[in-house]
């Protein structure tokens, strides 16, 4: 729902890096977005494309790697990965003493510049 705010922060960070490094053009940006981050990939790309015009990233493509939800269960000591966005119990033992170890990412990894 707030993909536009996220796209604006992303552009700010990327433009800042360009100013610092003296790059004039960003060709692509690699992101990692967790499935439980609440961010929709398509909506983020749409917002980014709409906002990138007056920036060094105006021709940049967004490559988004989706990160599945991964957890560690304290009851049965298992690590698990799920296709679901949210989990209510450990898929192995059904216990609730688990913590999420991945799936909330919203990270810029790197970018291709010239």
């Amino acid at each position: 729902m707030h993909e536009a705010s996220i796209a604006a922060s992303l552009l700010e960070i990327v433009s800042g890096q360009c100013r610092k490094g003296g790059y004039s053009r960003v060709e692509s940006i690699n992101l990692k977005v967790g499935r439980a981050s609440g961010i929709m990939k398509d909506a983020l790309i749409f917002a980014f494309d709409a906002m990138k015009e007056d920036s060094p990233a105006k021709e940049a493509l967004l490559h988004i790697e989706e990160v599945p939800v991964t957890g560690l269960c304290a009851d049965c000591n298992s690590t698990f990965t799920t296709e679901q966005e949210y989990i209510l119990s450990c898929p192995s033992c059904g216990g609730s003493s688990f913590r999420m170890t991945a799936g909330r990412e919203l990270d810029i990894i790197d970018m291709e510049v010239s």
């Binding site: 922060s9 960070i13 919203l106 990270d107 810029i108 990894i109 510049v113």
Partner: peptide, 9 residues
């Protein structure tokens, strides 16, 4: 050229 950013949005 690839530039590492490694930043949380």
């Amino acid at each position: 050229m690839k530039v590492k950013v490694a930043t949380k949005i």
